[in-house]
Design a protein around this nucleic acid. Structure first.
Lengths: 227, 227
DNA sequence: CTTCCATGTTAACGCTATGTTTACACAAAT
DNA sequence: ATTTGTGTAAACATAGCGTTAACATGGAAG
């Protein structure tokens, strides 16, 4: 799945902050590098080519803003993610930071957990953009919502809209059991009322068209996608 | 060619907030739609297929979180940007929101300018390579947007303007399904209103003129170019 | 063993989304 | 002025999706 861990460069002049952030993001599996001023940040960035740079705004030897501005002019750092970190919580700074080309702007005092969540959110978005297709791959089965296509062992399977939506719902969380009510409200919507057998019939058609039996019935509860 | 404004759906139960945000984002050139509760947001989202959804967390008839959760399970909202808006500034909510699949989390009271900056930052990151008009080669089919010409097995096929634009749109991302709404806004523009059958008629003419059936209908969803 | 309930199975059918054809306004070309 | 072609609308035709209803099955409880 993940070829290499995402590389993060953190620049701040307060050692405590560096340590706290490093520790928390390291725990998430990221590869962490640190710099303690602006020039060092630029140097290191050129060396290691990080995926994300977290910049304190107030730093000696070039502020975060300056670092950002310098890096953004270089082709190599065009698509690098940048987060500003700052004690300045005033509106103007924040706007200025974002317009300088930052992807996020987090105020101090920092909650390590919040920062981690924001970092994760940025990377999540980047993933789906790079791979462009958010298709699910489960063993020999591929489900591509962009192409509206299901493939088993390279062979295409054509599903109708509702069938596809139902399959996608189950396959998005393999192994998890979905209650009939859950399925109804997610695929059909809340206000629609359909008969008891409707879900079953769709499940049947999916099973039939797919050939492989990848959907398991949990009697009295619901259905789940088998891994 | 690629000048379509980004489409934003804003959902909040306070009319004042809706208005302020709409005004400010509208000024930036975005196309704005609004909903005043959760269910309405889901309905509208399905209709207009927005690029970004701004969700108030506290709303009647489904909270923002619920809306997010429901939409994220559906294939067509995998890549849609989502921002949460909330008065709850506590850490836990924020983390929860981001882990729910949101791309940003903004606390009330909202500064319109800050929100605008954050919206801009998200879209900036999303900007795809503006494919300068280069000719597409797909198997034995060549589509040259400069010469306005389509060639199949060396034989020229003459298409009318709208037909060509439609074909080019689909062929630019082979396999990808384009919703009827998407096609309308990309080929016809957002403000133009045309009848229900217009797209079909054009598709038919393309199919007829091309001889080869390279466009597949995905009923209830849209059309796609076959590879 | 019987009963009961949840789900599987099948066929049939209405309805909606799309296909198809024709007509027409309008623009461009001749 | 005539011709030719494009884009849209309107009026059908139609396929197949989504649903229902009726019946089958199987397993758990008694």
């Amino acid at each position: 799945m993940e070829g290499r861990p995402m590389r993060i460069l953190i620049a701040d002049d307060e050692p405590d902050i560096l340590e706290i952030i490093s520790y928390n993001l390291g725990k998430e599996g990221y590869e962490i590098h640190t710099a303690k001023d602006g020039n060092e940040a630029i140097e290191l960035a050129k060396q290691i080519n990080p995926d994300l740079i977290i910049l304190d705004v107030m730093m000696p030897r070039k502020t975060g803003m300056e670092v950002c501005q310098i890096l953004r002019t270089q082709p190599m750092f065009q698509k690098t993610l940048i987060i500003f970190l700052t004690a300045l919580s005033d509106e103007a700074s924040q706007i200025k930071g974002l317009e300088f080309g930052a992807d996020d702007y987090v105020n101090k005092p920092i909650s390590p957990k919040v920062l981690t969540s924001r970092v994760n959110a940025l990377f999540r978005r980047l993933q789906t953009k790079v791979s462009e297709d958010s298709s699910l791959v489960l063993g020999n089965i591929t489900i591509d919502p962009v192409k509206f296509m299901v493939t088993i062992d390279g062979a295409d399977v054509v599903l109708a809209k509702k069938e596809f939506e139902l399959l996608y719902l189950l396959a998005a969380k393999p192994g998890r059991v979905f209650l009939r009510n859950e399925i109804l409200s997610q695929v059909w919507g809340n206000d629609v009322i359909v008969g008891d057998r409707t879900i079953d019939v769709h499940i049947r058609k999916i099973r039939q068209k797919m050939g492989v039996d990848c959907i398991t019935t949990v009697k009295g509860v619901g259905y789940k996608f088998d891994v």
